[in-house]
Simulated assay, not measured.
Amino acid sequence: MSTLDLHADPAEITAALVDIASVSGAEAEIADAVETALRAQAPHLEVVRNGAAVLARTRLGRPSRVVLAGHLDTVPVNENLPLHRTGSGAGEVLHGLGTVDMKGGDAVFLHLAAAVTEPRHDLTFVFYDCEEVEAARNGLGRIERELPDWLRGDLAVVGEPSNAVIEAGCQGTLRAELRRAGTRAHTARAWMGENAIHGLAEPLRRLAEYRPRVVDIDGLTYREGLQAVRVAGGVAGNVVPDEAVLTVNHRFAPDRSPEQAERHVREVLDGFELSVVDVSGGALPGLHAPVVAELVAAAGGHAAAKLGWTDVARFAALGMPAVNLGPGDPTLAHTRQEHVAAAEIRTVADVLRAFVEVRR
């Protein structure tokens, strides 16, 4: 089993984590390494194992609690393991699967877990499984069902890549299918049929002309979107199709509930058969909460809106503000070219350490 040194440079912890393959559903080895390291090197923490997730926390009776959460799994390997490095010193870059999404964030949290023994806030660390697959398998859902008190706190920090900038809240996302029926006919006698694909012209026109909202919440700008993302239909090269399906994705600002977002999409596409196949609510930024304001101050006073959906929404649904803060460029996630600057990993560690440590 791989050995992790939690007192090492967070960039070195990242390198060690990356070299433990942990594709979704196969996180046992990395969970074993994390659990063993926490039990041996962070005796001040209560540690429990839940499936392929590892949880640890302080119980110091502080007036507030901060939850730091990161997933251990990655997308499938894409010729980007083992880890390799370029540059040196301040210019060192780590390349490999998970460097961005999100073993750099995990490494920062593991470093804090061992190094910070007298935090200003009680701390909970959640290293969980199956984030990169369907939501029903997400380890946070299982933990919420089986160990709900472990997810309670006054602020959640999710270590998803954010270019080392606090990204507060997140957008909601809704996916719907619009179906058009037609009548089959031979294309040599097309007038005898009704082309279902042609029937998508009007909803596609509405989507092309759609003007999304730009919403300001707590001084942060959230940009919505409503896009056609897939068109399916057709029987054969000489048949007028009798069915076509248009898949639509709506990214909505967190001031809208999933129900309000669905109503909006139905209004835009009024007159067409529409079924919602997936929806997840967003998360309000909550920047006015005192503990969030403290974190923003530790990060230099700047926060941005999260344009996308992350597990901060799960914590927001539990009634707590949540932010994303992690090293790495999110546009590199899930690509063969994943890489992260070692200096950025250290920056996130310094920001969070300044936030959680007792001020002397």
Rank of each mutant, 00 (worst) to 15 (best):
R85P: 00
V268F: 05
T310M: 03
L155Q: 04
G319Q: 10
E160W: 12
E224M: 02
G326I: 08
S280E: 15
L38V: 05
E46Q: 15
V165P: 02
G234L: 10
T14E: 06
A188M: 11
A42T: 04
N324Q: 13
M102I: 03
V276F: 04
A33L: 05
E118Y: 08
I217A: 15
L207N: 01
T335E: 09
W150M: 10
T117H: 04
Y128R: 11
V75M: 05
L204S: 01
D329R: 04
L200R: 09
V296G: 08
R65T: 14
S64C: 10
V323T: 11
V323M: 13
A297T: 15
A316Y: 06
D329N: 14
R206N: 01
H288N: 10
Y210E: 01
T58Y: 07
G271D: 12
G282S: 06
A8G: 03
V312M: 04
N78E: 14
E294S: 03
A190C: 02
N78G: 12
A303G: 05
E131N: 06
T331F: 08
R211F: 00
Y210G: 00
A115C: 08
A26F: 09
V116L: 06
A164M: 04
R336F: 03
E194C: 07
G87D: 13
V279N: 05
G308D: 09
R85K: 13
A208Y: 00
E167N: 11
W309Q: 04
T99A: 14
A283M: 12
F315H: 04
N195H: 05
D32F: 09
G199R: 07
S22W: 05
N238T: 14
R120H: 02
P148C: 06
A31Y: 12
A113I: 02
V279M: 12
A342K: 04
A253S: 15
A52E: 15
G199Q: 07
V214G: 01
G61Q: 04
L269S: 02
L83R: 14
E132V: 06
A37H: 01
E144C: 01
G199T: 07
V66S: 03
G182R: 09
E224D: 05
Y222D: 04
D242S: 12
L55C: 05
E259D: 14
A185Q: 12
G25D: 12
A261C: 06
L110H: 08
F355T: 06
G153M: 09
R57H: 01
L81N: 08
L151K: 04
K103N: 11
D216P: 00
A56H: 08
L45S: 07
L284A: 12
D278G: 05
V54G: 07
L68N: 07
G98D: 09
E146Y: 03
V240S: 02
V351L: 05
V231D: 02
D19K: 08
A33W: 09
Q260L: 08
L155A: 02
L204V: 07
F252I: 00
R213I: 03
P321K: 09
R180E: 15
L332C: 09
T310S: 10
A42F: 08
D350E: 15
A244W: 13
A343F: 10
A135Y: 13
H339D: 02
A28K: 11
G328W: 10
H288L: 03
V157E: 11
